[in-house]
Nucleic acid binder design. Structure first.
Length: 433
RNA sequence: GGAGGGUUCGCAUAGUGGUCGAGUGCGCCGCCUUGGAAAGGCGGUAUCGGGGAAACCUGAUCGAGGGUUCGAAUCCCUCACCCUCCGCCA
């Protein structure tokens, strides 16, 4: 959500933002609707002021005859107020619908482009893996090593279903344990948030209304989250934080549910694209300054890069183009891991910042310090919307694809990265184990 | 699933149709008092919007939404959440 004042005063910038993000929205219509809204509200408010005054007069009048006359006079005003309110209703509805679709303005550094094909590589780490034997896909490897069962996954769940079993399950636990160790050292507070949430939370993060087809919902009109960002942010709905609390840094872990509507033909096999997965997520709330947002954005992205580096998996980082970033995002980096059997990098992490796009929707504010406050006085500063950011720490099972393919050996076994070994209790996953 | 009771200004409470956007206590802030503090006294203590250079004026908000009324914290309806009891259950 942007401030309507900002939209009105910077209409051209907002129009350019929509163009760059390939978002269709009639911003001239929004301004026209807002004009009507203002006009009616101004009129309505002055009528209400009149009504309030008249009410006081009626209350103060003890003589019943006069009182009756006053009340009679009010009938006309009441009708006018009702007419204004009726007129305002459809305008407010349209205003809300349009306001929810206005895109956040992307950063200057965001490249133009239509899709992920136009993202720009900004970093690459590690040499892509080469084998002196015939390598196998993660599907073959994991099935032969008894780490995954797709047949029973589809039997029980359906399309894109899977079971992680034996070393597949243990390796997932090892990754979560190591991710906790790694990220908590950096000052995050751990959180296990709810995965069933009210609609309002998805409006808050910006997943609704535009991505409705990708979200599961229940017969009680609740929704399943596609990322713990949703309920982690929702935790702070309507809060007024103290400036000293910022930055707030959460490491949230949850199952994630995605319908993957419209991608039925893509990645139909294996663990790349599934309806249900697990994710450790970094979520940050910081002060309302662009510099702070940029600083924390670089930081959370770098955290995940470092994490991948300690696992030793080749990756590159891309700067997402205008067409590949969401409505609310100012800027986004994706980290993509090398997948040998596809001979390409695949996304495992997204680092985004939003400025106050989400916190306006969630109404998350903090009390800024007042530079003019007297010495020693508690800061009676302005309330500001905090800034929000988030970045994947690690998704499972998608990470397993690159992990097993890159670390496979000629005999079909898989070497376990050193940091995971203590959680796994061994250094190699092989048939014999 | 059934029955009942709640949701008011940071906290605790008062308020059952009109001088209530809202009293009181606590907390917090400022001033007075003090060598300093406590106690005490006085004053202040929400948010969002519109207008205005400012002072200030004005609208909205008593869980959310709708209704009745000239007028709603107060009456009616719907919903959400909390508490108590019964039932069921990991």
């Amino acid at each position: 959500m942007l401030d309507i004042k900002f939209i009105r005063e910077n209409l051209d910038i907002v129009k350019m933002a929509a163009t760059k993000k390939k978002i269709k929205i009639d911003l001239d219509r929004l301004v026209a609707v807002d004009d009507s809204r203002r006009e009616i509200m101004t009129r309505l408010e002055s009528r209400k002021a009149e009504q309030n005054m008249a009410s006081k007069r009626i209350a103060a009048e003890s003589e019943p005859g006069k009182r009756a006359v006053f009340i009679g006079d009010m009938q006309k005003l009441k009708t006018e107020i009702q007419a204004d309110e009726e007129a305002l209703k459809p305008i407010m509805e349209e205003w809300q619908v349009l306001m929810l679709q206005v895109p956040q303005v992307p950063d200057m550094t965001v490249p133009d482009g239509d899709s992920d094909a136009d993202n720009v590589e900004v970093k690459s780490w590690g040499d892509t893996t080469h084998f002196d034997f015939a390598p196998q896909t993660h599907i073959d490897l994991m099935q032969k090593l008894g780490m995954v069962d797709f047949d029973r996954g589809t039997k029980v769940h359906g399309f894109r279903g899977y079971y992680l079993i034996n070393d597949g399950a243990l390796l997932s636990w090892a990754i979560w344990n190591y991710a906790n160790e790694f990220f908590l050292k950096k000052g995050f507070s751990p959180m296990l948030p709810p995965t069933i949430v009210r609609k309002a939370n998805l409006y808050g993060t910006g997943h609704l209304p535009n991505d409705a087809e990708d979200v599961y919902h229940t017969q009680d009109d609740d929704y399943l989250i596609g990322t713990s960002e949703v309920s982690t942010m929702g935790y702070y709905t309507d809060d007024i934080l103290e400036k000293s609390q910022l930055p707030i840094k959460h490491l949230s872990f949850s199952p994630c549910y995605r319908r993957e509507a419209g991608s039925h033909g893509k990645d139909v096999k294996g663990l790349i694209r599934v309806h249900e997965f697990y994710k450790v997520e970094q979520v940050v709330l910081c002060e309302a300054s662009h510099e702070e947002s940029v600083k924390w954005h670089e930081w959370i992205n770098r955290n995940t890069e470092e994490f991948i580096e300690t696992l030793g998996i080749p990756y590159h980082t891309v700067l997402n183009c205008g067409g590949d970033i969401g409505q609310g995002q100012v800027k986004k980096y994706d980290i993509e891991l090398w997948v040998p059997m596809e001979q390409k990098y695949r996304e495992i992490s997204s680092a985004s910042y939003f400025h106050d796009f989400q916190t306006r929707r969630f109404n998350i504010r903090y009390r800024d310090e007042d530079p003019n406050a007297p010495e020693g006085a508690r800061a009676g500063g302005k309330l500001r919307y905090a800034h929000s950011l988030n970045c994947t720490a690690i998704p499972t099972p998608r990470i397993l694809v690159s992990l097993v393919e890159n670390f496979q050996q000629a005999d079909g076994s898989v070497k376990i990265p050193e940091p995971l070994q203590k959680y796994m209790g061994k250094a190699v996953i092989s048939k014999a184990s």
